[in-house]
Design a binder for these strands. Structure first.
Length: 298
DNA sequence: AGGCGATCCTGAGGGC
DNA sequence: TGCCCTCAGGATCGCC
């Protein structure tokens, strides 16, 4: 399931190919995966919203959202959801990326003036989708509801997002308005790396804990993005390649197995409906702020 | 008001 | 071998 590192890796691999390219056409197989933020009544308007006829100027990303902006300012955002992928195809689609669930396919004339490629959005489970914006300003306004991006998260920003919150720390990390880009995998991993129990009240974390957590989120997300988003079972990048290096998860998906740090059996629980794994020894619930240290919750 | 749970959707995997 | 059940979860909505 794509989280920030996979989206960032996708952005880095798409950017050198599509920037400067001109969108020759688009084929929308499933219209309900495309959401327009400005009225587009005619077929031609819908094509324009999907950047047909435009030259692509830049890519950007906030959290798990990938934006492609045209020179005119018209912008579209791709959200991968759980099972979304974007592939660049010079010939036939990579194996496994063909067939069903290819919802939107663009035809691009590349900047070299000779090559033509397809860019295909595929999403079997359709938790993802594409949103179109009439201008970059409209996108920036939409992105104001997102918290700071996880790749550059500072302790101060995280502290502001968690202050006074009674909710479990992990729930706060999954809230995109607190930190943009952290999903279930990296929430568990960064909490383990910070020795914080996922059920610790967000507002009860000490300054020291928040500093460490922000640093671990940054470190883990950057490392995974640089490794090519290799953390996913069936993740493929824009050219159909699996992630380069195999990342070792310390806790995610390892409930019932021994902790790689201390050997204690890892605890699997459900938090906010999400599978959650932690080490009951390395991640102590009672490690709250000094002064509330003795408070315990079951 | 804030937090939590239900919901959407399909494929993989386990059990029988 | 094949069928059925469960599980996975990002984002949104409604309820408490």
């Amino acid at each position: 399931m794509p989280e920030l590192p996979e989206v960032e890796h996708l952005r880095r691999s798409l950017d050198p190919v599509i920037v400067g390219a001109t969108v020759r056409g688009v084929r929308v197989v499933r219209r309900d995966v495309v959401h327009a933020t400005a009225p587009s009544r005619t077929a031609a308007q819908r094509q324009t919203a999907l950047l047909v006829g435009e030259r692509l100027a830049r890519t950007s990303r906030r959290g798990k959202q990938l934006a492609i902006e045209a020179e005119s300012g018209m912008t579209l955002v791709i959200q991968l959801g759980m099972t979304g992928s974007v592939t660049i195809e010079r010939g036939r689609p990579p194996s496994g990326m063909d067939g069903k669930h290819r919802h939107v396919v663009w035809e691009l004339d590349l900047a070299d003036g000779r090559s033509r490629v397809r860019m295909a959005f595929r999403d079997p489970r359709r938790f993802g989708g594409i949103t179109t914006y009439p201008s970059r300003a409209h996108l920036d306004q939409a992105w104001e509801s997102l918290g700071p991006d996880g790749l550059g998260l500072t302790a101060t920003e995280l502290s502001e997002g968690l202050r006074g919150r009674k909710r479990p720390g992990k729930s706060a990390l999954l809230d995109q308005s607190v930190v943009a880009g952290v999903g279930n995998i990296y929430a568990d991993e960064s909490l383990f790396a910070s020795a914080i129990h996922p059920q610790t009240q967000a507002g009860a974390l000490s300054t020291h804990q928040i500093g460490r957590l922000a640093a671990e989120i940054r470190r883990i997300l950057n490392h995974a993005a640089d490794a090519g988003g290799s953390t996913l079972r069936d993740y493929r990048d824009a050219f159909g390649n699996p992630g380069g290096a195999v990342q070792l998860h310390m806790v995610y998906g390892r409930g019932g197995e021994p902790c790689l740090r201390c050997g204690t059996t890892l605890l699997g629980l459900r938090l906010q409906g999400r599978a959650t794994v932690c080490c009951p020894r390395c991640q102590d619930l009672s490690t709250g702020r000094a002064g509330s240290r003795s408070r315990r919750r079951s």
